[in-house]
Design a protein around this nucleic acid. Structure first.
Length: 828
DNA sequence: CTCTCCCT
């Protein structure tokens, strides 16, 4: 291996600079792929400065982070022996250093998007250089799409250079019109990679703790460990505390720490001591930790998943990408050769996604859509994006911007949209500030917006009123910077403000202000345990010990977690009267009819609703309409159809039809399941105007059942399955169709005297099951063969019965005897 | 099992 960067001042990138200059002289776009340590960020812009095609115009260098932008500007200025603001300038949100002499402007990606939207011709600019493009931020993707559009339509002479560390350069080159790709060597010390697959039953915290302790014993130097999030970092720190030696210091490192805490975490260990830094993906790029020789990588990272439809983002723990784990490994070889321990089997590396998911595929696109509309493009998918913005997120963004009144029906910018774009804030918050300005509260709204966009400003209390108050008392440099910015937003918003009628809300308070930005996240308490339901239908919870948890209504600004378990991170209370005053056109009056199972009756309520949220309700008489009847019918079906007012005749009717259906499927299916599934069709029309089960009569049920039988089958029913059977005495006896063996005719035996043939129905096809009864209607015999009975067991029955009922006829030959229906004994 | 990171 060659010697390291410390001993060789010439950087690997120098070797490709002549080729790069040559390509850019003849082509308008170029891709430069160079791994970390190549020196591209600082060397390339300076090398292009004297190119003839630049003709004295400026170069814009895009960096993904303010820290990186400041560092690049400082190093380039130093190379020239100048200060930032001379030849090399800087333009970031908080503070710009630009002068008339400036030829290279280092800007953050978001700044460039605004620059090109304000000046699509990019007057005075000869080249735009995208650095760290492999990070694929939303702003970089949008900035490149807009720059390509401008180049094609207005500025064919504009040079576009895309620089990237690990990118698949060919894809970008295609996007840039088959631009040439130049590759450079990187420079890093060798890093030995060791794999050890984790026992799947072991928790990641335990595996990481064991691996760190092993690594400390095996090699000298400090350790940088990558974990997915704060929770894991805290738990590993606790586990390590019991088992680590006194000369080794454990330092957590993640984004939510204050800058001072972060500085302490990345400071080198004192001589003779070692350090274990437990970090999130924050340590993959942008900050270097001195003295790290050992990296231990869990292979996991926490990534956001945007849910269009709810307009919310939740976090999931996922395997880190191949690019990400390689980047992590590289952190061990920054200053000397190192070791990287990976907590997975070597073969699993090939199964990793090659790159992390580009932000444009998993983000809220409302800002992007608004910017595109300002560019004159209503459909962003017509621009040259490396990955096209996904349709569901665009649909959601379009709906939100329409609701904010920022776009018209054709997707063009409205005057409100112009006003929102003038504020460098997310569209919802911009709308809040503009609308508050119309009521003379621009300053209050801008301060609330500041607390919402700058993480940690005003602390992390859930109650945003508390955060605004703390921020107002904060005299630190960051708070002062943000106050200057917020003042600018407020002034800008006031230029668009036209005095409006009284809104009936006090916009000096956080809750009413927030409602302007998040009308869909107005929430109502459900129960007492800090549970709230929002107008968008989703629920979230608060620590029940917080005073905020006792409020009836909140506006939720931020929450995390899965749909089933979302935690509210920022909110402010709002009064019911304020909600009613703010959203008269959004609040709908809904009459709701529901079946009360306990009372077995319908209940009607008039509800005032904001989306999924019920603001108030009162009891109403049940409307006697078809809709109510359907709800009652379905409620009854849930209880079971046996609760209906069945009479013996209706039960028999049903049994007759089921009997026929069993043999012949031209008859309708009237099983319990089929009837229950179709109550809307047959029961509901006959119970219109009924408000409870008790109000339904047997007649209602009869009419409803009749409707189940087509006209042409009604006459056949009487023939095939008659209700009664006429015996020789002339008695019409009801048949029982519910018996399992078939339809039953139960009759006193004397009424059958003279009958030679067995009685049958259904055109003689189905013999009845005869239940022969004594004069006292006690069962004597069951038979399906009456002639056989007369010939056979009748004589035995006769001898027994004659003794018990001596005054009734028990003839020797029943076929020859006249039938009788007399029950009373013959005269005495 | 209380939040990844970044920007106008």
């Amino acid at each position: 291996m060659s010697s390291g960067p410390a001993t060789t001042p010439d950087l690997p990138i120098e070797a490709v600079l002549p080729a790069l200059a040559e390509r850019l002289a003849e082509r308008s776009a170029c891709v430069l792929v160079a791994p970390p340590g190549a020196g591209k960020t600082t060397r390339v812009p300076l090398a292009l400065l004297d190119a003839p095609w630049l003709a004295g115009r400026r170069i814009i260098l895009l960096e993904p982070r303010r820290l990186a932008a400041r560092g690049a500007a400082e190093r380039m200025a130093q190379t020239l022996g100048e200060r930032v603001g001379d030849t090399v300038g800087l333009r970031v949100r908080l503070g710009s250093k630009i002068s008339a002499r400036t030829r290279i402007e280092v800007v953050t990606e978001g700044v460039f998007t605004r620059m090109i939207l304000d000046d699509p011709e990019l007057v005075g600019i000869g080249a735009v250089v995208f650095d760290e493009f492999h990070e694929r931020s939303l702003d970089a993707d949008l900035g490149l799409a807009l720059a390509l559009d401008a180049q094609g339509a207005l500025r064919e002479d504009l040079r576009i250079l895309v620089m990237s560390a690990t990118l698949d350069g060919a894809r970008v080159a295609t996007l840039l019109g088959d631009a040439p790709v130049i590759e450079s060597e990187g420079r890093a010390y060798p890093v030995e990679t060791r794999h050890s697959a984790r026992d799947p039953d072991q928790r990641i915290e335990q595996a990481m703790t064991d691996a760190i302790l092993r690594a400390l014993r095996a090699d000298p130097g400090s350790v940088l460990a990558f974990l997915p999030g704060q929770g894991e970092i805290r738990r590993v720190a606790t586990l390590l505390a019991d088992r680590i030696d006194a000369v080794t210091h454990v330092a957590p490192l993640y984004g939510a720490l204050t800058p001072a805490e972060q500085d302490r975490a990345i400071a080198p260990a004192p001589p003779g001591r070692r350090k274990v830094v437990l970090a999130t993906s924050i340590a993959e790029t942008s900050l270097t930790i001195q003295g790290v020789r050992i990296v231990v990588d869990s292979g996991l990272s926490r990534v956001p998943v945007y849910e269009p439809g709810l307009g919310l983002t939740r976090l999931v723990t996922a395997r880190a990408s191949r690019a990400s784990v390689d980047q992590r490994r590289g952190r061990a070889g920054r200053t000397e050769p190192g070791v990287c321990h990976r907590l997975w089997a070597e073969a699993a590396t090939n199964a990793l996604e090659p790159f992390g998911r580009p932000e444009i595929l998993a983000a809220d696109l409302s800002g992007l859509l608004l910017d595109c509309a300002a560019w004159g493009v209503a459909d962003p998918t017509t621009l040259a994006f490396l990955d096209s913005p996904p349709a569901p997120a665009l649909t959601e963004a379009r709906a939100m911007l329409r609701a904010l009144d920022a776009l018209d029906a054709d997707g063009r910018l409205t005057p409100m949209g112009v006003a929102l774009r003038a504020l460098p804030l997310p569209p919802r918050l911009a709308r809040m500030v503009v609308q508050a300005a119309a009521h003379g509260r621009a300053r209050e709204a801008a301060n609330l917006a500041a607390v919402l966009v700058e993480r940690g400003l005003g602390g992390d209390a859930v109650d945003l009123g508390d955060r605004v108050e703390r921020y107002a008392r904060d005299r630190g440099p960051r708070a002062q910077d943000m106050r200057r910015l917020a003042d600018g937003w407020a002034k800008q918003a006031q230029t668009f403000a036209r005095a409006q009628r009284d809104a009936g809300a006090d916009f000096s308070e956080a809750g009413p202000l927030l409602a302007l930005a998040y009308p869909d996240r107005v929430a109502r308490a459900r129960g007492r345990d800090g549970e709230f339901v929002m107008a968008n239908g989703r629920a979230g919870r608060l620590d029940p010990a917080l005073p905020l948890a006792r409020e009836a209504f909140l506006v939720v600004a931020d929450l995390v977690g899965t749909a089933a378990n979302a935690r509210i991170l920022a909110a402010a209370p709002i009064a019911l009267e304020t909600i009613e005053a703010l959203f008269p056109e959004r609040i709908a009056s809904v009459t709701q009819v529901a079946f009360d199972k306990g009372a077995r009756a319908l209940r009607a309520r008039a509800q005032r609703r904001l989306g999924a949220l019920t603001l108030g309700e009162r009891i109403l008489p049940v409307p006697p309409d078809a809709d109510s009847a359907v709800i009652l019918a379905n409620g009854i079906a849930e209880l079971g159809l046996s609760v209906l007012p069945w009479t013996p005749a209706l039960s028999q009717w049903l049994a007759r039809l089921r009997f026929l259906r069993a043999a012949d499927s031209t008859w309708p299916d009237l099983s319990d399941a089929a009837l229950g599934a179709t109550v809307t069709d047959w029961l509901a029309p006959e119970i219109v105007g009924r408000a409870s089960l008790d109000a339904i009569t047997a007649d209602d049920l009869g009419c409803a059942l009749q409707a189940l039988l087509p006209w042409d089958l009604r006459a056949r029913l009487e023939i095939e399955a008659p209700t009664h059977f006429e015996v020789p005495t002339g008695s019409r006896i009801a048949l029982d169709y519910e018996s399992e063996g078939g339809p039953v005719l139960a009759v006193r035996v004397q009424e059958l005297f003279g009958l030679e043939r067995h009685p049958a129905i259904a055109g003689g096809r189905v013999p009845l099951v005869l239940h022969l009864l004594s004069p006292a209607s006690r069962p004597i015999q069951i038979t399906r063969d009456l002639p056989g009975f007369w010939r056979g067991s009748w004589s035995a029955v006769r001898s027994e019965m004659r003794g018990r009922y001596p005054r009734h006829p028990w003839p020797e030959d029943p076929v020859a005897e006249p039938p009788t229906r007399r029950v009373k004994p013959r005269g005495t």
